[in-house]
Simulated assay, not measured.
Amino acid sequence: MVVLSLPAEVAAILLDIEGTTTPISYVQDTLFPYIKDNVKEYLRSHWGEEECQQDVSLLRKQAEEDSSLDGIVPIPSETGTGEGEVEQIIQAVVDNVYWQMSLDRKTTALKQLQGHMWRAAYTSGRMKGEVFEDVVPAIRKWREAGLKVYIYSSGSVEAQKLLFGYSTEGDILELLDGHFDTKLGPKVESESYRRIARSIGCSTNNVLFLTDVTREAHAAEEANMHVAVVLRPGNAGLTDDEKSYYSLITSFSELFLPSST
């Protein structure tokens, strides 16, 4: 087993989600397919609610901004209350969502609707957030040692809280000290990690970032954070140079505190 000793100056651990705390397969095979399979039903069921209408308005505005892009699906405005007209608009929203997801777009409008759909699925018990079995025991040990633990993911803060609040391990939000998403900045830009450190109230050198993506690891390292790359089943492979350059772990249990080495 790999043993990676935590640098003594580290006071906080920053965690990626997909491929780090949570299997990539959960995101690819559960979260996103749920949206595609249920978006029409969700819109029909919640159409009369203000939140749903806000989601549709935001998607419509995004579609207007995207009007010059190939394949864009415009979303017409509702001019009446006819059932046929509503159904046409719903179909346009569905087609627009499919189009955005096919391009792996991460617009605020799309993420907002997805977040509301996932919330409904989690709270109704139709879905549970998946975390690797080594995650919760390790976080408990880190916190017992006085470390803070934060999340930084491209998924919205709301989606993060749903995943950990309704997880296969129960509600584990109390183990997390804070959440960051890409509203703060892209994960492949070093300035994002400096902003996180400032928000936490420490130096970047006091933070260890765990991720499965070497571009993210590189950006965090440029900001003077400590980094380790997490190797999980289903994650993208690394080059020989990346394997030799980065500290690698296959489980959070391989990260040891200085006092335990």
Rank of each mutant, 00 (worst) to 15 (best):
E41D: 14
V97P: 02
Q53A: 06
G71Q: 02
A63W: 01
L58M: 15
D95L: 07
N96A: 11
E41M: 06
L69D: 10
I90F: 04
H116C: 03
Y122F: 10
D37P: 00
Q100H: 05
R119I: 00
I90N: 02
V93D: 00
M101W: 02
A120L: 07
Y98F: 15
E83S: 14
N96M: 02
N38P: 08
E78V: 09
R60V: 10
G115F: 08
F32C: 01
E50M: 13
A109M: 03
E50Y: 11
L59G: 12
A109P: 08
C52K: 06
S57P: 00
E50C: 07
R119M: 02
I35E: 06
T108A: 14
E87M: 06
W47P: 12
I89W: 06
E49N: 10
M101H: 02
L58F: 11
Q53H: 09
G80T: 13
P33V: 02
Y122S: 00
E78S: 10
W99R: 07
V86E: 11
R119A: 04
D66Y: 09
S77Q: 14
Q114D: 03
S45N: 13
E51F: 10
S77K: 14
G80W: 11
V93I: 06
R44T: 07
Y42C: 11
P76D: 13
Y122P: 00
